[in-house]
Amino acid sequence: MPRERQSVSDTVSWLSFPRQAYPNFYLNTERIRHRFHGYLGSITQFSESVENSGEVNASMKALFLDAGIKRGHGGSVNMAWDLIDPLPQALVLRAHLAAAGEVHTDARSAPVTDFVLARGRGGIAQPPQLADSPLWGEVGVSPSVVTEIAAEQRRQAAIGTSGDPAPLYWAAFANTDRGLVVSLLGDASLIGTDVRSYLGLDMTYCIFGQKLRDWHSWTLLSPLHVWVEPPGTANWG
């Protein structure tokens, strides 16, 4: 089932959290742009409701502006196409979907193509020897599941996409309360953070994307945004 609709107060609290507080591993700018534009009408209405709540601070207004949303004359909302930044777009998109009750936290029960936010202890296995990574055994993922993940990695690397043109795909995973969730991250869309410096650390992995399919004991998401947090209470929605 989708998560419950998020109140305006909760949304304001989430959006005001520093967006660079935790390392962002992956951002698929092409997919983010397409999804953001697809929801543009409802996102602009969402931004108006948040700004009209009276709880908006300067950093939150800057976040909306960086996503390309700005106030015109007479208070109308329009898009500033020359100001668009994909990370703020990803954050605003996810906040809008959460406020509308359209983000699942149980990937297993989510319908295919629906938006999912998977969060749990996890890791990231690097290519090209993904199947040989000792990480899988350390976290209790069975050899048969590793074989399935490696086969899907090879399949995606063979077909490629315009959003992920590089042939190398990292496997990020989160052990959630409802099972193992995996996303294959195109090397070309890894951003900023040195992913290798976090290999083997006890971190909470957060994967925001759309469900592709279920295997017997794991679920695959098409990733939009992937980041890590310290273990403990979630701060990012």
Rank of each mutant, 00 (worst) to 15 (best):
T219E: 01
Q89H: 02
Q126K: 11
G140K: 04
H37E: 15
S7A: 07
A150N: 11
W227N: 08
Y205I: 08
A166D: 15
P223S: 11
S133W: 00
R3H: 14
R19S: 03
T147K: 14
G137R: 00
Y169S: 04
A21K: 13
Q153R: 10
T11I: 14
Q129A: 06
V141L: 13
V92H: 00
I32F: 06
S53V: 03
C206N: 08
V141P: 05
P165L: 08
S9F: 13
H96T: 07
A150D: 05
G68I: 00
A90V: 04
D214E: 10
S133T: 07
D106N: 15
T29V: 08
D214R: 06
F46D: 13
L40K: 15
W218A: 04
S49L: 07
A188K: 12
A166G: 08
R33M: 08
E138R: 10
W14F: 12
A58T: 12
L117M: 12
H104N: 15
T233A: 15
S9V: 09
I207P: 10
P167W: 03
F208V: 10
N52S: 15
A166V: 01
E152L: 09
K211S: 11
K211T: 02
L117H: 10
Y26W: 05
I43G: 10
H37K: 15
G137N: 02
A131N: 08
L185H: 00
A21L: 15
A172L: 07
M79Q: 05
R3L: 14
L117I: 07
A158M: 01
Q156F: 02
P165V: 12
Q89E: 06
R213E: 11
R35D: 15
V182H: 01
Y26T: 05
R3A: 15
E148N: 05
L190F: 05
R121S: 14
L212A: 03
P167A: 09
V92S: 02
G200P: 00
A131C: 02
